[in-house]
Computed example of a mutant assay.
Amino acid sequence: MATVDLSALDPAADPLPVLRELLAPLGEAVEAERLTGGMFATTFRVTLADGERVIVKTAPTSTDRLLTYEADLIRTEALVYGLAADRPDLLMPRVLHTDFTRQIVASDVVVASHLPGTPLMSAGFGPSGEDPRTDRADRELGALMARLHTVIGDRFGYPNTATGLQGDTWVEAFGRIVEQLLADAAQWGTVVPDAEVRAALARHADALAQVDRPALLHTDLWPGNLFVDVETGELVGVIDTERAFWGDPLLELSGADQTGRGPVPTALLAGYAEAASAFDLDEPTTAARLLLYRMFYSLLLVVEIAPRGYVGDWLPQHRATAEANLRWALDELAALDAPANA
């Protein structure tokens, strides 16, 4: 069988022939359903002949529309799931199979166990403070973050060293990550306030320098990547670790609310404090770092629009929100005294 590009497969085409070949080490694939909702990977839920369901995930085959940090992201997902293999408290799938040969499918593939539960984004929970299921999910997410952050790496930055987005210090690594986003923006003709972003990093370098342990960060713990029990709000699963990197645990708070400005849910902070040292968000350098991370996510959301080729009625509002949040974060950072002068 010729190599197949699953990301470009016609929706009406039958993916089973290639999935059968890919999954032969695990069993016979008898049914496949393409999962929608993701903006990056192509994902199938596959049922094997013995009734087991597995998740097959593959990256885009074409790499000319990827941001720099997105190179070989599926390998990062497999790496993180592997790190969690002996940590059931991290609630992640098990890696069942990987194929990085690109001989059956034209890009990297990870096959993982199917998790129970319902995505939090579609669970129908009410607002925090009103629905106890929401408060439980937030509290357990905070505790999950704290457990994840006990996994410590050797260096800061993205696991894929080919990107060059690493450093021996958090100041160095985070600076490279942001600088590469600015370079990606320039490559795609996206106008961003790059001078202001660089100035904010320089002014608050001392705040970033307080981070001395490269903790494992999921970086994308939004409700679409969390599975819950719809009756109780219990957090039962976490997926999509392809954007993970080693860095400041505080960044995880922004990653869980990438289009927001705060405040961080009280229950989430309480859950984190039950399992680790509490975040003091009122402490000046901590507040500065959180604003830097809100700046980072807003910048990322703006920059990725062009290479992803986003279209749709939702796009103008999405762009406006990301740009407004970026402006807000920069203004808030400008209003702070630089930590070195405090």
Score class of each variant (00 low, 15 high):
residue 322 A to D: 00
residue 282 D to L: 09
residue 167 G to W: 03
residue 165 L to N: 02
residue 335 A to E: 15
residue 257 D to R: 14
residue 314 W to Q: 08
residue 89 D to R: 11
residue 190 T to Y: 01
residue 97 H to M: 08
residue 20 R to D: 05
residue 240 D to Q: 06
residue 259 T to V: 13
residue 280 D to P: 07
residue 134 T to L: 05
residue 264 V to T: 14
residue 129 G to M: 06
residue 19 L to N: 02
residue 278 A to R: 12
residue 308 R to N: 09
residue 331 D to Y: 09
residue 220 D to Q: 05
residue 302 V to E: 01
residue 336 L to K: 07
residue 171 V to N: 09
residue 153 G to Y: 02
residue 172 E to M: 04
residue 48 L to Y: 10
residue 3 T to C: 15
residue 46 V to I: 07
residue 182 L to T: 07
residue 40 F to N: 15
residue 115 L to K: 02
residue 267 A to K: 00
residue 112 A to Q: 12
residue 289 R to M: 05
residue 11 P to Y: 07
residue 216 L to F: 05
residue 24 A to C: 10
residue 277 S to R: 12
residue 14 D to C: 05
residue 112 A to L: 07
residue 196 E to F: 11
residue 196 E to N: 12
residue 190 T to S: 03
residue 142 G to K: 00
residue 105 V to S: 02
residue 47 T to L: 13
residue 284 P to N: 07
residue 305 I to Y: 11
residue 33 E to R: 13
residue 262 G to M: 07
residue 325 N to T: 06
residue 212 D to G: 13
residue 10 D to I: 02
residue 129 G to R: 03
residue 78 A to K: 03
residue 144 L to G: 01
residue 235 L to T: 05
residue 29 A to Q: 01
residue 312 G to F: 00
residue 14 D to R: 03
residue 268 L to K: 02
residue 3 T to D: 12
residue 166 Q to F: 10
residue 256 A to H: 04
residue 1 M to R: 15
residue 260 G to R: 09
residue 175 G to Q: 04
residue 158 Y to K: 01
residue 333 L to E: 04
residue 45 R to G: 09
residue 161 T to P: 13
residue 220 D to Y: 01
residue 3 T to G: 15
residue 224 G to H: 06
residue 294 R to Q: 10
residue 71 A to D: 10
residue 120 L to T: 08
residue 161 T to V: 11
residue 271 G to Y: 00
residue 307 P to M: 07
residue 108 D to E: 15
residue 333 L to F: 09
residue 306 A to P: 08
residue 274 E to Q: 09
residue 139 R to N: 02
residue 259 T to S: 12
residue 25 P to S: 07
residue 236 V to D: 01
residue 193 P to N: 08
residue 239 I to A: 01
residue 160 N to K: 08
residue 134 T to D: 01
residue 36 T to F: 15
residue 327 R to F: 11
residue 100 F to W: 14
residue 56 V to F: 03
residue 152 I to K: 14
residue 226 L to F: 06
residue 137 A to G: 08
residue 199 A to W: 11
residue 9 L to S: 05
residue 244 A to H: 01
residue 245 F to M: 10
residue 172 E to P: 05
residue 340 A to Y: 06
residue 219 T to M: 06
residue 243 R to S: 06
residue 239 I to N: 00
residue 341 N to S: 10
residue 137 A to T: 14
residue 90 L to A: 03
residue 324 A to R: 10
residue 144 L to R: 12
residue 3 T to A: 15
residue 294 R to Y: 08
residue 309 G to C: 03
residue 132 P to Y: 01
residue 78 A to Q: 12
residue 129 G to N: 03
residue 187 Q to A: 12
residue 310 Y to I: 05
